[in-house]
Design a protein around this nucleic acid. Sequence first.
DNA 1: CGGGAAGTTGAAGCCAGTCAAGATTTGTGG
DNA 2: CCACAAATCTTGACTGGCTTCAACTTCCCG
Lengths: 242, 242
Amino acid sequence: MATKCSNCPLRKKALFTPVSKSDIQTMQRFKAGEMTVEAGTTLLMEGSNSPQLFTALNGMGLRYKTLADGSRQVINLIFPGDFIGLQAGVMKEMKHSVEATTDMTLCVFDRTEFYRFFKSNPELGFDITWLAAVAEHFLGETLTTVGQRKAMPALAWALHSIFERGKAIGLVRGNQMRFPYRQQDLADALGLSLVHTNKTLGKLRDLNAARWEDSKLQVLDQDKLAEIAMIDEIILEPRPLM
Amino acid sequence: MATKCSNCPLRKKALFTPVSKSDIQTMQRFKAGEMTVEAGTTLLMEGSNSPQLFTALNGMGLRYKTLADGSRQVINLIFPGDFIGLQAGVMKEMKHSVEATTDMTLCVFDRTEFYRFFKSNPELGFDITWLAAVAEHFLGETLTTVGQRKAMPALAWALHSIFERGKAIGLVRGNQMRFPYRQQDLADALGLSLVHTNKTLGKLRDLNAARWEDSKLQVLDQDKLAEIAMIDEIILEPRPLM
DNA sequence: CGGGAAGTTGAAGCCAGTCAAGATTTGTGG
DNA sequence: CCACAAATCTTGACTGGCTTCAACTTCCCG
């Protein structure tokens, strides 16, 4: 049976801003239902016009775009709490695809309700803008990594950010978290080849900075990662959860 | 003397969605003033906490981030009609810098009014979300280019997009538009070295696809550009103008 | 007319891509 | 529960696109 927004387990996490009870009720009304999908399912497809918006409750996925020659750019990884499909809510069609990497459960919202929801709940509308701004910010970070960092710093940056994100939503236990992607996924996210990604991950392992094996990411020395990645400081500011 | 929103010359351009008269009046009230800056001015600085939001009325600029080792990633170019500073409006501080490449004039909005404006004008709030989603979309495109396309297609993609954008806001006359950036700017936007950018631009020139000289971009064969860039189709959907 | 910024061009070297093959894991049907 | 196939991960060797270095040109502004 579907989770009530008021019982949403995500809301307790450090990453998210507190919300009033009445706002939660409003969201609850906007929520059309819950959906469970198997690993490998394509949630949204480039060029399609989905009638639905989602929030990831559980599981992980990824957003990507494909070029004519078959190459794939992973735009970002999707973690619990991520809002999916804003583009479809506002534009004519999706410009990228979204795929479930693991089994996932998602909150489902009705796209046709979106505008009305927005108009009748300006505060929550503001939160959605906030989310969009945060997404834009992260894309800028990623772009900077792909454009300027070499393989080693790029991977260090990626693992560092992922781990930080994992901490913020309570996925980290001790010094490790579940991280069920393929090396190819990370390679496609950073614009690197699979082979080079593999070898560079090996170097990070040899440096005792981080090891990623068997779908588990273990960060042994996060400061070292930050140093390799040329990260000055990361502040994951709290943000709204829809 | 400051332009009235009702006379805003940008609004007539194909790129922007029509807005009701009452909405224009609302925007006019939100508008705190107009600002003119010289080429080279830094409008917003990474880490700062600007009290203002802008819309570019005239002139061009760029958004960028710098890394510890001095390398710079140009996040995107700023053209007339672009809304600047949403991050500051919603987050604690700017995560990138914004610089005027040419002399610019900008509409200025008061950041402290932002939330109130949003709440009392949900329709316009929706438009801002729309803008954020569009920005996110373009960043995804850029990321895909930087991550997956090689130098030749990447530059073809960039020139194609820029020209398309120029057409949409009426900057193109005949087959050319003013394009007053340095090669270094484009290099930093695409994650390429200046030297390689220069040589690749030369190739595009030899192919009679596009030439960029003396701050003027001339597109001789846009289809050829699209082909080199592996672009299937570009649709610049109309979007709101704040 | 001198100096700095931007653009151009050639040459050398390296980071990362590509190719290829084997090891390991995972999944599946008999 | 084994056997085979498919996917993923590893590793080595070769190649090449791009970076870096360096010098020279052109343009502009004081």
